[in-house]
Design a protein around this nucleic acid. Sequence first.
DNA 1: AACACGGGGGC
DNA 2: GCCCCAGTGTT
Length: 347
Amino acid sequence: MQNVIPNLLTWYKNVHRKLPWRETSNPYYIWVSEVILQQTRVEQGREYYVKFVDKFPDVFSLARADVSEILKIWQGLGYYARARNMHFAAKQMVDLHQGNFPNDYFSIKNLRGIGDYTAAAIASFAFKQHYPAIDGNVKRVTARFYGVDLPISTPAFYKLVEKELFLAIKTTEPDIFNQAMIELGAMVCTPVNPKCEICPIQSECFAFKFDKTLELPNNPPKKKPIRKYLHFFYIEVEGHLVLQQRPSEGIWGGLNEFPCIESLGVDEIPENMMEYLGLENGSFEIVDNFEFKHLLTHQTIFAKLWHLKVNSNNNLTLKNWNLIKINDIRTFPLHKLMVKILDKLHL
DNA sequence: AACACGGGGGC
DNA sequence: GCCCCAGTGTT
C-alpha cells in the first residue's frame, strides 16, 4: 500500500465531498456525525446531524437532556439505541472527564455506543492518532486491494485487515488516510459497478489486476426477514387517545405507539385483545380497521389497525401509557410504522 | 459466531 | 427483489 498512499491522499484532497462534519476538528461534533452515520447513508444522516448539533451543541446540553428529547431528534433514523447510548456516553463524559471529550483511543472506546470503528474515527479525525477506521467501505476496499478472501464478517478477516492498515497508516497523516479510504469506498470502490478506471490506487489493487472485483469482498448471503403480525389499537376516548411507550430494550426502544399485540396471523381480531387492554363487553365499539405491510431489514411486518371508541378509560390495564390530546400526538417520539398509521388516519 | 437492531436508496 | 449503508452490544 505504501507506494500508492500519496496517490490516495492527493485524490482525496482534490475530490472529496464537502460535508458539515468535515469542517471541524471538535471531537463532540465528529462523534455526533459518526454515530449518526453508523449503518446509515450520508444523505440520510445529513439533516439529522444539523438538527442534532443545533439542539445539543455540546456534551453538557446532551447530558442534561431527557432521553425523549433526544429520541425526538432521532425519530425516523432507526437503530434508536444509538440515541440512548449517546445520552449515556455524555453523562459518562461529565462524570469521568469533567465534560471534556477523552483524547485517546482507549478512553474514547470506553464510552457507550463507541466501538472499534467510531473510536478510531474520532481518535484520528480529532486527535491525529494512528488508528485505522475500519467500516464497511474500508473492509471492501481492503479486501479488494489485498485480495483478502476470508468471509467479511469474521474475526479472522478483521484481524488481517487491521494488521495491514496499521502498517499503512503508521507512515502517513492518519485523519486524511482514514477519510480517504472511506471516501474511496463510498464513491469509487462501490459494492457494485466500482469505478476502477478512476481509482487512485488501481495500480496495486489485487482485485483489479486479477479481475476479482465481483468476487471480493467474500460476503456470505444474508438471512431472509422474518414475518410478524402486529395489531395496533387506536383507542379514542372523549377526544383523547391512548399512547404507549415501548420499553427501552428491543425494537423501537423508548418510542411511542398505539397499544400493540403480536399475533400469529393478521386476519382475525386477537383473542386476548380485551384482556390486554382491560376492556369489558359493551364498553367499546370498533369503528374502523385496515391492514398494511411495513418493511424492515430484518422483519416483514403485517400490521392491522383497529380504531376503537370507548366510554371510559377506568379499567385500562396497560403499562407505560398516557391519555393524550389527539392534537399533541406528533410531539412525541414515534417510529415510522406509527407515523404511517397516523398518516392513514389523517391525524 | 450469530443475532438484534430501522430505514432508505441504488440497481 | 436484493444489497448494504461512516456498526455496536448482547448472547
